[in-house]
Design a protein around this nucleic acid. Structure first.
Lengths: 213, 213
DNA sequence: GTATTGACTAACCATTTAGTTAATACAAAA
DNA sequence: TTTTGTATTAACTAAATGGTTAGTCAATAC
């Protein structure tokens, strides 16, 4: 009944998936050990195979779930019918927040896709995920109407995603280089939730910039 | 004598390092196999241990080299005494080019630092690498003089790095989502070598923007 | 001409690891 | 109470993997 709410007595299968998520997200497919996942879940290793047959299938379950968390939200927000700048602001804020809540998610996904690009292509096609053409068109139209500078929509989209995701993926690098404490880093990322949108909008706004050339 | 120039008859130690670089960069520490490295080098597995003692020490050699390739160049370019905008243009162009030439390098480094942050910190301190304060000050000064908008230097620096590195790290994701061919992707990245600087400079330029709030 | 050394190999060893199996606990159905 | 099917475990297996060893070979030293 209230199984979603009460966390204490999860079924074994769910406990396994939780544990697998923790381990796979932090160590990746190659670095994860079935025994470690079993320990994390507090159950016998044989149960992993009982419920998920093999390491690969358990991994696939985790990976699918991760893809399902990263992409649909992009699709959803970017499909709103609101002015471009508002859309950018909402997207940036929500996406950075999402990444901060799941800090290992983007690195995990990027890494595993790099390692098995084929698997990703299949899954992506199979799930029917598609990047919202709406947003692409938004940018194109705004550019044509002269509301923003003339920019290849793909260029802008990649810039937006890069600014949201990179600082999360590279967290330990940034912390290391600038000797930031965990708190420093958190403050920094919180500021980004709104400043990144400013940065982007500043860049594509017309103002008095001498249009083409 | 001319050992550096002629590439055909490398010493065994160098062959091992080359092979190890290939394998570790693409598969990471956990995913790499000593046998595979030996095969790639065309030598016996025992030689890996003969020259480098253990997998970990071989990995360290590769990792150190990678750190040495990624950071010193940043430091160097960002220390030039030239106007800020020129510096940004040169840096972006050179850095994107460097990343494209070593496409697995940034992902490898980020990933392994995430997995062993401690090791990175040590190495970083030991090598005495330090992020150029000059550039930080450049930004701060330009902001104070009103030549650019008021922005936290760290924020800008992270944005610049993100825009350079992310599209390389996430190459298979971008290709997958937008169904780009290798050629499409290359064209895209070539465009970025100069457009990214425009994007950044646009964003921080004063123009007629009504300064503060 | 013999001893020594560095480079190298094949075979081996110990451990780890994914996966299997056979036995058992347990609850629900008959 | 017996039966039956599901959940769970301890113990095991086979393959993979990092690392070692004993020994070969060619060049160099003495």
């Amino acid at each position: 009944m209230d199984s979603q709410i009460i966390n204490k007595e999860k079924g074994t299968e769910a406990k396994i998936l939780d544990a697998a998520r923790n381990i796979f997200h932090t160590k990746g497919l190659a670095g994860a050990r079935m025994q470690e996942i079993a320990d994390e879940a507090g159950i016998n290793k044989a149960m992993l195979h009982y419920y998920y047959r093999s390491k690969e299938q358990l991994f696939d379950a985790v990976f699918k779930e991760a893809i399902g968390r990263i992409f649909p939200i992009i699709v959803q927000i970017l499909s709103y019918e609101i002015p471009l700048f508002d859309k950018i602001r909402i997207f940036v804020k929500e996406y950075i927040r999402l990444m901060r809540e799941n800090p290992y998610l983007p690195g995990f996904v990027i890494n595993e896709i790099t390692q098995h690009p084929d698997k990703f292509a299949n899954l992506f096609a199979e799930k029917g995920i598609e990047f919202p053409k709406v947003f692409y068109d938004d940018i194109k139209n705004s550019a044509e109407k002269g509301e923003i500078i003339n920019i290849d929509p793909l260029m802008l989209i990649v810039n937006i995603i890069a600014l949201c995701i990179f600082p999360v993926v590279a967290k330990p690098v940034i912390k290391g280089i600038y000797r930031l404490t965990e708190e420093d880093y958190n403050d920094f990322m919180e500021k980004r939730e709104y400043e990144v949108a400013d940065f982007i909008i500043n860049s594509i706004s017309m103002n008095n910039k001498n249009g083409d050339k």
